[in-house]
Design a protein around this nucleic acid. Structure first.
Length: 795
RNA sequence: GCCGAGGUGGUGGAACGGUAUACACGAAGGACUUAAAAUCCUUUGCCCAAAAGGCUUGCGGGUUCAAAUCCCGCCCUCGGUACCA
């Protein structure tokens, strides 16, 4: 075989055209072992992909190909999350229709994904904005609606003034819109919600899932479970009770005031005549304040007295009721008991407003310092019957006493709020609800789905729902009474689309149902999911919720969608995350042109551990390219007709190492291993058997090169129809001992693997003696580790 | 503050408690060439002219025959998060 120069371009195009584009891999045959390998639904944009985007795709593809070689039937689907704000905003900016924008973006993405040479099954292809997909998104909405998991209510919600729509809590990052970074404000609006809070407890459970700690922690923090007590404080001169939530019922005897959030409904009810003006002014001012101002660190606490009092549930003492915005209307009961002696916030507030501070827990030793709140455990004091026990026992006793009186109980609070899913925007799935004056809210019958999104809509955002302005969309008849009725004109959050797409992939052409139970049960849960950790509390939480909801409704039997989640690290360039808007991106097209897809894939894997952030090194790609040139030469120096089955040590070693490393996803170390082997094999003439092994262990990372070599070696079928080789690697005959004195390396000794301990120790002594580095009389102890080390401990 | 991930050469990074710095980039020198690119060879953690030797995995302790790795106490960087009662 005469070595041509390695021409990646030619080879890669060849195989990208030959590799099947549609082979309906979701049709699992009896006896086949499934493996569902998924990368996150692409959000197509006209900007195209940069090398940072390639990272998860490359990881997923290497992994999918490896699983294939291990004999699994791999489902590795592809599709596009095309609905949503970014597409709509980009379309507006480019003065085009979102549908047209989406079409060109998808075409562009499709081309780039082909260039990646990934093992995608294009027959699974689904697009969230196509009616045969969103029909089932609407179906999903109806299932939730019909089972009390979707509802409409009026609430104070997040409003993005730039995008002119409401947002879910998860889409507000630090008081700003997740998409455009604009400060959000609060508006009282009637909106649609999904009851994710029903699953708060289930969502905390990650048993059996291989997920990175950081992602689990983020979700747990977002769900924010805290255990404590709900305690009633009856309002004097009213029949109402103020409910407070506290994690510290043990401090109940130290309550010196109560605080209501400014938006608490009781404020109006209880405020005394004389305080009315002050309180109303305070409420107005508090509501005006933006989330960002309110979140400012170390902000001065403000508040006003309502003029009203409540009775302490155990002592009946009058407790003044205040309004202060350090209490949030959206958490707990929107009211707290003020215990300045044992809570830092209450302490500051009480000091500033001259409210009494009553210590009810003292340190186990010494006396309490009254310049500061005491937050540690201790002994109950000043608490009547509850004195002299630990605060833990005291807390239990207090709740027991409250329970007896019917004015308190143990309870659990979550920070998680229901998921707001309606949007006042055009480019999304219409919410399938009809309002009839006679019959009220009506679900669109499933047989009438999809509720089509009209194309002739004036979609510039103005704050109202664009569909509302359409001449005909809105008008329909009531499915119940047949009378004239109107449609809901809000559309669904795009995260609803992406919260179930992995189910659709198992049955992408089904036009009777979103997926057949049989298909979904065959493939799910997803075995391996790769994507960015920035989705930790958006997509990943929503997808888990939807799966759990569908399980409750009996559409699926599993309760988690993603068995293993691999959060790929971010690629940085010049110290910040690659992004088109910042202008610091590396275009993969250029690199592919110069060095080929395989070199780029190889470098992406070689850069560093795939789950860690890494800085892009412009020249790093050269090392991989040189390795590929070298490999090309090695593969062209093969005894093609030989029946020799001996496997040389460099190949054995590489095979062994990669077989050990790859299951742990140590891609970077696999590439290093291959490089080492190539360096050792440069001048060697391989036999055919060796070349085949080498090609297979290289193929997950550089599939085009491996496939080409495989065909040159005389195979007419794909290398990915082959199996990961199983070879017995014989242990080497000799081993190298490190000879140490007091743990410091003093020399090395090559010895027979089978040589016995005393022989090796003697040889070691002789060696060190010759170098005058050991006085045998001083040896106190000799450590011998077979095959590794001899360590002489000397005086 | 709290939670998570990190801290190893000039750079990206390797290292079941057992020869720290593999692999690669970059740099220096050389070969080939009229020349350059490409390629190949050599060197490349620090100190010392070199050898010998010593030092070295953010800092300080500890455990161990032996620590980048385990334990304790700090420092720094990145990411997340926060009046959550």
């Amino acid at each position: 075989m005469k070595a041509r120069k390695y021409n990646p371009h030619q080879i890669e195009q060849k195989w990208q055209n030959i590799w099947p584009k549609e082979w309906e891999s979701y049709k699992l045959q009896p006896g086949e072992e499934k493996y569902y390998c998924l990368d996150m639904w692409s959000y197509p944009s006209s900007d195209g992909l940069h090398t940072g985007h390639w990272r998860p795709y490359t990881i997923a593809d290497a992994w999918a190909r490896y699983q294939t070689l291990k004999g699994k039937k791999v489902l590795h689907p592809v599709g596009f999350d095309a609905f949503g704000l970014p597409a709509e905003n980009a379309a507006i900016k480019n003065k085009t229709h979102p549908a047209d924008y989406t079409k060109t973006s998808i075409a562009n993405f499709t081309r780039q994904l082909h260039e990646l040479g990934a093992m995608y099954d294009w027959s699974t292809h689904s697009v969230s904005s196509s009616p045969d997909y969103y029909r089932w998104t609407q179906w999903l909405f109806l299932q939730l609606y019909n089972n009390d998991l979707a509802y409409r209510k009026s609430a104070l919600v997040n409003w993005c003034p730039k995008d002119q729509t409401v947002l879910a809590n998860e889409q507000v990052i630090g008081g700003r819109c997740e998409r455009c970074g604009t400060e959000v404000n609060k508006k009282e609006l009637k909106q649609w919600f999904f009851k994710i809070t029903d699953f708060a407890e289930d969502l905390l459970n990650f048993d059996g899932l291989t997920w990175p700690e950081r992602v689990k922690t983020l979700q747990r923090a977002w769900i924010g479970k805290s255990e404590g007590a709900e305690i009633d404080f009856p309002i004097t001169e009213s029949n109402e009770k103020i409910k407070v939530f506290t994690t510290r019922p043990d401090t109940l005897m130290g309550v010196t005031y109560l605080v209501l959030a400014p938006e608490h409904p009781f404020v109006k009810l209880i405020t005394s005549e004389s305080q009315k003006n002050i309180v109303t002014a305070y409420q107005e001012q508090a509501l005006k304040e933006s989330e960002i101002e309110r979140l400012t660190e170390n902000r001065k606490k403000t508040g006003v007295f309502t003029g009203a009092y409540a009775k302490h549930p155990l002592t009946d003492k009058d407790i003044p009721i205040w309004v202060a915005d350090y209490v949030l209307g959206t958490y707990g009961t929107g009211a707290v008991m003020g215990v300045p002696a044992h809570d830092s916030r209450d302490f500051i507030f009480a000091r500033d407003y001259k409210l009494p501070i009553a210590y009810v827990i003292s340190p186990p030793e010494g006396v309490v310092n009254d310049d500061a709140p005491y937050l540690e455990p201790g002994t109950m004091i000043n608490s009547d019957d509850f004195n002299d026990q630990t605060n833990e026992a005291g807390g239990k006793a207090i709740v027991e006493a409250l329970e007896k009186k019917g004015s308190g109980k143990w309870t659990v609070q979550y920070r998680l709020r229901d998921w707001l899913v309606s949007r006042q925007r055009y480019w999304g799935a219409p919410i399938p609800i009809i309002y009839c004056e006679k019959c009220g809210e009506q679900a669109v019958p499933e047989s009438d789905l999809p509720v089509l999104l009209p194309t002739d809509v004036e979609f510039m955002p103005t704050g109202g729902s664009p569909l509302d302005r359409h001449p005909t969309f809105k008008h329909t008849s009531c499915p119940n009474c047949g009378g004239s009725a109107t449609r809901e004109t809000d559309t669904l959050d795009t995260f609803v689309d992406s919260s179930w797409y992995f189910l659709r992939y198992t049955d992408p052409k089904n036009d009777k149902e979103p997926f057949s139970k049989e298909q979904v049960e065959k493939w799910l849960p997803v075995d391996f999911y790769v994507g960015g950790v920035e989705h930790a509390i958006l997509h990943l939480l929503y997808a888990r919720f939807v799966t759990k909801a569908l399980q409750r409704l009996n559409y699926v039997s599993f309760h988690e969608p993603f068995k293993q989640f691999y959060g790929n690290g971010i690629v940085y360039l010049h110290g910040s995350k690659m992004s088109k808007s910042k202008g610091n991106i590396v275009n993969p097209d250029d690199i592919v042109k110069r060095h080929g897809t395989d070199a780029l894939r190889g470098y992406i894997l070689f850069m560093g551990p795939g789950d860690q952030d890494v800085e892009w090194q412009e020249n790093g790609i050269l090392g991989v390219r040189r390795f590929m040139d070298k490999s090309w030469q090695i593969f062209h120096n093969v005894e093609i007709d030989s029946n020799n089955e001996t496997v040389r040590p460099p190949i054995e070693k590489a095979y062994q190492a990669i077989s050990d490393l790859l299951p742990h996803l140590y891609f970077n170390r696999c590439i290093s291993t291959l490089m080492t082997a190539a360096n050792e094999l440069q001048d060697v003439r391989l036999n055919k058997h060796e070349a085949e092994i080498l090609a297979i262990i290289l193929s997950p990372f550089m599939p085009h090169l491996a496939e080409e070599v495989w065909s040159i070696l005389g195979h007419s079928t794909s290398i990915f129809d082959a199996q990961w080789p199983v070879i017995e690697v014989a242990a080497e005959k000799t081993v190298i001992y490190a000879i140490q004195v007091n743990g410091k390396l003093r020399g090395t000794l090559e010895a027979d693997r089978e040589a016995d301990e005393s022989k090796i120790i003697n040889e070691s002594k002789r060696l060190l003696h010759a170098k005058s580095q050991l006085d045998e009389n001083n040896i106190i102890k000799t450590i011998f580790v077979a095959g590794r080390i001899v360590n002489f401990v000397v005086k």
